[in-house]
Design a protein around this nucleic acid. Sequence first.
DNA 1: CTGTATCCCTCCTGATACTG
DNA 2: CAGTATCAGGAGGGATACAG
Lengths: 127, 127
Amino acid sequence: MKPTAHPDPERCRLVNDIIALVGDKWSVQVVMCLGGGQQRFTEIRRAVEGISQKMLTVTLRGLERDGYVQRTVHATIPPRVDYELTPLGYELLVPLKALGDWALTHYRRVAAARAAYDARALADAAE
Amino acid sequence: MKPTAHPDPERCRLVNDIIALVGDKWSVQVVMCLGGGQQRFTEIRRAVEGISQKMLTVTLRGLERDGYVQRTVHATIPPRVDYELTPLGYELLVPLKALGDWALTHYRRVAAARAAYDARALADAAE
DNA sequence: CTGTATCCCTCCTGATACTG
DNA sequence: CAGTATCAGGAGGGATACAG
């Protein structure tokens, strides 16, 4: 693959806006988790290892605000809240999975590049 | 599109590792900028609007470490440094562009969802 | 021109405690 | 169960000054 068109500033901004939403520590993991179907708050919390209660709430609110996630409250005792991807959420899953597949295919090359870079940096520092 | 397989923790971690690299404020913009071909430090700085000198340096170092970008120093006066995507970088550009195209296609729906959510939040607060 | 070094401040994040 | 409230620590990121 070789160089293509020159970057468009407007395009950059829009892309970055979506990426920013998607690029934080938890959003992608939550969306992928919900790709498995409707789940409750605690189920997601268990599935996404390491996420705190606060951050799960914040993340879900953000995804709901952007229309990726549908939140359904059942007025029962104890309360029950279901989260599910909207049609938009499922559509987002497609390019997200593409990126995920790419990561799974190439992460070894990234790891190798990192190791090589760090080794070189270490050697330079030792001179 | 409907629910698929259950999320795999290991897969989540690997994907998140790549996304984290890609998901910061500047990396994607720089990679897309370099998709236009080899460029000098100052050229990138001008193309990526709003980036500071410090953050461009930090971002380029990160991309170089992960093997996405090749850095070439010319020992001239004044110094000249060229940056170019590696083959791995160009490959990353593919799923990145897919996500970018998705963003361009659907950002209106995201904006609409945000507006609706904010309007509703405002109405709820006013009651 | 292409960086490095420093200061500083904001925001993200986790931990903890409390509510309906 | 599903949150909200509060606080503190640390990383991210900008401004500035300086160096090769």
